[in-house]
Design a protein around this nucleic acid. Structure first.
Length: 220
DNA sequence: CACGCGATTTGCT
DNA sequence: GCAAATCGCGTGT
């Protein structure tokens, strides 16, 4: 019997078991793939946003879905790193997270934008309203749509087929950071500059990208 | 059990 | 520049 070679994913999973705020910049440039019956779409991540759980009392995160503890919906965020947390919002949109932190700790990165590097045709089919290729995944709900992700995939392991995650050869050097988008209250303030994006990348979501500032300016 | 709102996108003004 | 579309979840009665 031929045994299909399966890559050792545990080093990557352990890497992802770190703090989402530190992993955010390091995941920029990583490629997430999803194979479906329709074909394969791969996205190179250009914008992510960190969310924490109730464990971190130093940084209460009322903007996080896990702020009030585990629920059936947010359960994957408390699970092992490298899994997906997909949620439904505004009655019509899906958004995708990659779970970070050790099991039991609700840390995750919301995938806010990316560049389609494989399966652009299928991505266009899933997002017919997008005319510009750079807009295929320039927003969290757009990215989820382009990858064909719904809540049905929440909790699935992003490191195992039909998914796949590959880190960039080298960490990105030109990274910007800023306040999170759509989060009200303290969690959205300047003190929580947990949104990271590749500086000047055309696929970064338009919403607040107009006023980019170097990550440096946020370090006191 | 009823109510209010959101980690958004799109299209029209 | 702004409002509509639409429903699961958390909160409060």
């Amino acid at each position: 019997m031929s045994r299909s070679p399966s890559p050792d994913r545990e080093p990557l999973r352990e890497f992802l078991s770190g703090d989402a705020r530190e992993l955010g910049p390091l995941l920029l440039g990583a490629v997430l793939s999803h194979d479906s019956r329709e074909g394969r779409v791969s996205v190179r991540l250009t914008e992510v946003e960190a969310y924490l759980g109730p464990e971190d009392s130093l940084h209460p995160d009322p903007g996080s879905h896990t702020y009030r503890g585990p629920t059936p919906r947010n359960a994957p965020m408390f699970g092992p790193a490298g899994h997906l947390y997909v949620y439904f919002t505004y009655g019509m949109h899906h958004c995708t997270n990659i779970v970070c932190g050790p099991e039991g700790v609700a840390s995750a990165l919301l995938l806010r934008a990316g560049e389609i590097v494989e399966g652009a045709e299928l991505a266009r089919h899933r997002r017919p309203t997008s005319k510009n290729p750079a807009d295929l995944a320039s927003g969290p709900a757009r990215l989820a749509k382009a990858l064909g992700l719904t809540t049905a995939y929440s909790g699935r392991d992003a490191l195992v087929p039909p998914f796949g995650l590959t880190l960039p050869d080298r960490p990105a050097t030109q990274v910007s950071s800023g306040p999170r988008v759509g989060v009200s209250g303290a969690g959205g303030s300047e003190d929580y500059a947990w949104r990271f994006w590749l500086s000047g990348d055309p696929t970064v979501s338009r919403y607040k990208a107009a006023k980019p500032r170097p990550a440096r300016q946020h370090l006191r």
